[in-house]
Design a protein around this nucleic acid. Structure first.
Lengths: 256, 256
DNA sequence: GCGTAGACTGTGGTCAGACCACAGGTATTG
DNA sequence: CAATACCTGTGGTCTGACCACAGTCTACGC
């Protein structure tokens, strides 16, 4: 049996994935203790730990020291962190071009806006049924962004939260996680590009206005308009701030 | 300095990420040996290994035993594997609903088709300049799919490659990686759903035809038509095969 | 009987050291 | 000069040990 052709930690990872797929492990469940896993898989504890580390970074488990029901490794399945780590590191390692990240964000976010607007349109104004997207979080964030004392970093953080809240309102967790990852991967670039703006106060006013317009188009149930406004919003900002794409277009991440 | 509030492996990870961002480390570079990293960071080798394991799964480095220039940990930045692992595990752990994965795939792929068609339209037929997307790989895959002796699994594998080749032709590595991840995350569901089809031969004929139509629309430079055909293609297949969404709509991945 | 303070237990987090397999480089030898 | 054997450095793994931490349990004092 060529069972040990894989590295030891990989067998552990596969085993856990299989248990997940087969339903033996579900969100909320505790993983066996590291020492027990090591024994039952016939590997060393360090190999188990490497597998668990991967699961933790990918957002699948949460580990806690101590004893009791809240300790140990617990399945959580929170994809946000893992996606962010993946995107950040890939951008840092030039596996992803910043321009591609922005373009992808554009596509996803326009789709989200369009979808939300469609959902709003299909609901009667008085009907707050299950299909009506909840835009209250987005509205609160917009209000928070109107506070005059915000620093640039605080404003940008709220900005990110606003865009993310739209994705969350759409209910698509995959898109939400992806957008969170995309955003965090270029966060440092966005921050660094603020000085490139001709006038921050002027820009922030424009951004606020565009945000309101986007939300209005969504609430009005105008998919095409909402998507177009989102595109213009994002494109406009990156155009103006001239995000330095770093190594522009890397020929290709080395293939071999 | 609350430097050791983070876990040891995390400091290693951050350190490498910082080196990546600052340009100290570039794709193709060798990481220092594990023992050296451990010494310079003041942590144990096992902690270094946990960090490297994460980087490896995320597709950032490749490790090899032995000695010489090809050994050790090398920065590679191939996002495909990492994205696939992340998606697969999140779907397995019910962090992502299959329906959301499919919907996201729809959005990305429609966008890719539209973009490719636009690029084709802006080029003169005789102009094979740098902006002309290369669809030859996709064409070859379509020809390969016409072979009659293909098993269902082989056909589906080529199908996946075809869709992926479109993303690659668009040149957007972020989208390409995402589509690879999305696809692999639901691969087992797709395979399992083949028996749900009324007639596999009939379906495969239809899929082939739709593929040709999509490619034709792209080559003809018709963005709207290409995107619509992609949507119909994907939607139609999932409709027909009735992919079991597993736990359908998980209330929410446990938040706390 | 009851409450509280201490010890106990089990968990992850980390480290140190050892050994192995492997592959390239180098020195030795024919 | 060439082929071979050795050497070195690398990741891969295991073992054992210790720590910090947080519940749980127990024994003590009231």
């Amino acid at each position: 049996m060529p069972a040990d052709t894989r590295r030891a930690w990989e067998t552990v990872l596969r085993s856990i994935e299989a248990d997940l797929l087969s339903g033996v492990l579900k969100p909320g469940d505790h993983l066996p203790p590291e020492r027990a896993l090591a024994a039952e898989q016939g590997v060393g504890r360090s190999s188990v730990r490497e597998a668990l580390r991967v699961l933790e970074v990918l957002g699948l488990i949460r580990t806690a020291t101590g004893s009791g029901p809240s300790s140990g490794a617990i399945i959580v399945a929170l994809p946000g962190g893992g996606m962010s780590a993946l995107m950040r590191l890939q951008v840092a390692a030039q596996g992803f071009a910043v321009a591609d990240v922005v373009k992808t964000r554009l596509v996803l976010e326009a789709s989200v806006a369009s979808e939300l607007a469609t959902a709003c349109a299909s609901d009667h104004p008085t009907d707050s049924g299950p299909t009506a997207p909840d835009l209250s979080v987005a509205r609160q964030l917009l209000d928070a962004m109107d506070r005059p004392a915000l620093t640039e970093a605080e404003f940008l953080a709220l900005d990110a939260q606003f865009h993310l809240s739209l994705a969350e309102a759409s209910g698509n967790q995959v898109v939400t996680a992806m957008m969170a990852g995309l955003r965090s991967s270029i966060e440092s670039y966005v921050q660094a590009a603020v000085p490139n703006l001709q006038s921050w106060p002027q820009t922030s006013v424009r951004l606020r206005s565009e945000h309101r317009d986007i939300l209005a188009a969504i609430a009005a149930g105008e998919p095409t308009d909402a998507a177009a406004r989102v595109r213009a919003h994002i494109d406009g900002y990156y155009e103006e701030s001239r995000i330095t794409p770093g190594p522009a277009a890397p020929e290709r991440a080395l293939s071999a």
